[in-house]
Design a protein around this nucleic acid. Sequence first.
DNA 1: AAAAATAGGTATAAAAAATAACTATTACGA
DNA 2: TCGTAATAGTTATTTTTTATACCTATTTTT
Lengths: 148, 148
Amino acid sequence: MSRVDTSYLESLLGYNCRRATLHVLSRFFDRMAVFGLRPVDFSVLSITMHNPGVTSRQVCGAINILSPNLVRIIQSLDERGLISRKTDAQDKRAIGLYLTSAGKKLMRDAEQSASELEIEAAAALSETERVQLIALLQKLYRPVDGES
Amino acid sequence: MSRVDTSYLESLLGYNCRRATLHVLSRFFDRMAVFGLRPVDFSVLSITMHNPGVTSRQVCGAINILSPNLVRIIQSLDERGLISRKTDAQDKRAIGLYLTSAGKKLMRDAEQSASELEIEAAAALSETERVQLIALLQKLYRPVDGES
DNA sequence: AAAAATAGGTATAAAAAATAACTATTACGA
DNA sequence: TCGTAATAGTTATTTTTTATACCTATTTTT
């Protein structure tokens, strides 16, 4: 069975980014299943952990999802007792998110597991290469200084 | 409006890969709209262009999608007169894919446009960095020699 | 105070991805 | 060589993800 020549696609950033994302995220997905978290849940909790009082709007910007799609995620995390919501005193439109103690406990384990996966997923890379890869990815997707 | 601290997520490969993929692919999507192609259509056509007679099974492997989801894509490309399908003489189960002349013409323009985008999307990177980034991504997602 | 913008949300639609099962053909092992 | 398993492609269907349109309450702007 002759191999398929994908050399042209492999010369494109988009193809390689997508393949790498699928590779890493499917492993992340499997690992987080133990905690009942999808990657997106993990992201929301992690941001909330490191930014107590963060608003859903801010979360949307940080992980690039649309607000209507965040609603159910937050509701479900709330129902599971992992986060709590508190209306901001200054701006009554805004609702701050906070981890409950159960949420904190879960996330300590989940972030530990994520760190382990980080090593595992990047097994083919040296630590220098891993750091370098992340730096290059950020250069790629981060808005250039001075742009909107 | 205080900025959100995403430093933890930014230390993870998966988060960065996903952000970069969204960044690049959304631009790719916009650019290919002129040709009436989504990224996945472009990939299928490009693989067919460089591998005349490729089977849908091989295409699935190359771009990591499931065969039931490829069927409609191929049907639609066929209906648009961009590809043709020919049953293999040796193995009557297999169906080889080929670009029609219209398909070839379209892809010449589309690949040209993709190359332009490549420069544009990687504007923040030097050419060396772009090449380096692609190499690191491939190291990450490609199965290690000797694994299944 | 009126108009515009913002935060969050509801309802819904569209698109993408996954699952189960079927046909036809080919390969394999007893 | 016959029966079983595997493969290529497909259909039908479901689940999941993502996008759109619109609404309310509050805040900001003019």
